[in-house]
């Protein structure tokens, strides 16, 4: 049998390596570092159609990611999808009349919420509601519109 001190040191190094690897996986590899925990403020927005938007989809302004979709719900008074956007506390100066649209990144990419700042002097605060929204483009609807417009021409 090997000297017990050497064995203990080797086991200690092994366990430290293993835990270190888990730590690297959690911090460097996973999204933990850019989740930002639960801080940030929440803004609501109602969309007629959210298409393929999912919880945790990105929220961007001018292409820069400023937050994520925190929750998606259905509002049965307005017959709309209620999307809760959680925005990083660093970006706290969006005018009240900011508009939100759902776009697709690339041709087949995933969908995201793009915010476009307006000109109001007041800023959006936690719990505010974005009123100017533009729904996701649904391919079938586009094709349908196109077909109707063709039919009208004739």
């Amino acid at each position: 049998m090997m000297q017990s001190k050497t064995v203990e040191i080797a086991v200690g190094i092994f366990v430290a390596l293993g835990l270190g690897a888990l730590f690297i996986l959690a911090m460097q590899v996973s999204n933990l570092s850019n989740l930002g925990g639960d801080d940030g403020y929440e803004v609501r927005a109602g969309f007629d159609n959210i298409g393929g938007l999912k919880v945790r989809s990105p929220v961007t302004v001018a292409g820069v990611r400023v937050g994520r979709v925190a929750a998606i719900d259905y509002d049965d008074e307005n017959y709309q999808a209620e999307v809760i956007l959680r925005i990083d506390p660093r970006f706290d100066a969006f005018p009240l009349d900011t508009s939100a649209s759902i776009f697709t990144s690339g041709l087949l990419g995933e969908q995201y919420v793009a915010l476009e700042p307006g000109g109001d002097m007041e800023y959006l605060r936690d719990g505010d509601r974005i009123t100017l929204t533009q729904s996701a483009l649904v391919l079938e609807q586009l094709i349908g519109k196109f077909l109707f417009s063709q039919a009208d021409k004739e």
């Binding site: 092994f14 366990v15 390596l17 293993g18 835990l19 690897a21 888990l22 690297i24 996986l25 590899v29």
Partner: peptide
């Protein structure tokens, strides 16, 4: 039981 998850984590990290 203790070694497996540690080894798997090392494997994944080294692999990345």
């Amino acid at each position: 039981f203790i070694s497996m998850p540690l080894l798997a984590a090392i494997f994944s990290t080294v692999g990345i």
